[in-house]
Simulated scan of single mutants.
Amino acid sequence: MPHTTGRHELGQNFLVDPRVVDTVLSVVATWPDDRPLLELGPGDGALTGPLAALGRPVTAVEIDARRAARLRRRLAGRVDVVRGDLARHRLDTGADIVSNVPYGITTPLLRRLLGAPHWHHAILLLQWEVARKRAGVGGTTLMAAQWWPWFTFGLVHRVPATSFRPVTSVDGGLLEVRRRPVPLVADAVHHRSVVTETFTGRGRGVLDVVGRRHGRSVRDLWARSSSVGSRDLPRDLDVEQWVTLAELVPRRSESQQRRGRGRDDDHRQERHP
Rank of each mutant, 00 (worst) to 15 (best):
residue 189 V to F: 10
residue 207 L to Q: 09
residue 155 L to N: 07
residue 159 V to W: 06
residue 210 V to H: 05
residue 178 R to S: 15
residue 138 G to M: 02
residue 135 A to S: 14
residue 129 E to M: 00
residue 222 W to H: 07
residue 234 P to C: 00
residue 144 A to Y: 06
residue 246 A to P: 05
residue 126 L to R: 03
residue 160 P to A: 08
residue 177 V to R: 06
residue 159 V to N: 07
residue 208 D to Q: 06
residue 191 H to P: 10
residue 148 W to A: 15
residue 209 V to W: 04
residue 245 L to G: 06
residue 238 D to G: 13
residue 129 E to H: 07
residue 209 V to L: 02
residue 238 D to Y: 04
residue 151 F to G: 06
residue 197 E to H: 11
residue 182 V to K: 12
residue 176 E to G: 00
residue 148 W to L: 14
residue 200 T to P: 04
residue 234 P to R: 05
residue 213 R to L: 15
residue 152 T to E: 15
residue 199 F to H: 08
residue 114 L to W: 13
residue 144 A to E: 12
residue 147 W to F: 15
residue 144 A to S: 14
residue 183 P to L: 10
residue 197 E to W: 13
residue 184 L to E: 13
residue 193 S to M: 14
residue 173 G to A: 11
residue 217 S to D: 15
residue 168 T to G: 11
residue 136 G to A: 06
residue 214 H to T: 00
residue 245 L to W: 04
residue 223 A to K: 01
residue 227 S to D: 15
residue 114 L to E: 02
residue 213 R to S: 14
residue 196 T to M: 14
residue 164 F to A: 07
residue 222 W to V: 05
residue 143 M to D: 00
residue 246 A to L: 03
residue 117 P to L: 04
residue 197 E to Q: 14
residue 138 G to V: 01
residue 223 A to W: 00
residue 172 G to I: 09
residue 203 G to I: 07
residue 212 R to Q: 12
residue 211 G to R: 12
residue 178 R to W: 01
residue 220 D to A: 11
residue 183 P to A: 11
residue 118 H to F: 13
residue 177 V to P: 03
residue 167 V to I: 11
residue 185 V to Q: 10
residue 169 S to P: 02
residue 238 D to K: 07
residue 247 E to P: 00
residue 178 R to M: 02
residue 218 V to A: 02
residue 212 R to S: 12
residue 210 V to P: 10
residue 232 D to K: 03
residue 166 P to A: 01
residue 132 R to Q: 15
residue 243 V to L: 01
residue 146 Q to A: 15
residue 179 R to C: 08
residue 181 P to W: 04
residue 224 R to H: 13
residue 239 V to W: 01
residue 164 F to S: 07
residue 194 V to L: 05
residue 225 S to N: 08
residue 210 V to R: 03
residue 116 A to I: 04
residue 159 V to L: 03
residue 177 V to S: 08
residue 224 R to I: 03
residue 158 R to L: 03
residue 226 S to N: 01
residue 123 I to L: 14
residue 231 R to E: 14
residue 235 R to F: 05
residue 188 A to F: 10
residue 149 P to Q: 09
residue 242 W to M: 02
residue 147 W to E: 13
residue 186 A to T: 14
residue 158 R to H: 10
residue 194 V to Y: 09
residue 239 V to Y: 02
residue 117 P to R: 03
residue 230 S to G: 04
residue 136 G to V: 08
residue 164 F to V: 05
residue 126 L to K: 03
residue 234 P to W: 02
residue 155 L to M: 15
residue 192 R to C: 04
residue 113 L to R: 09
residue 125 L to C: 12
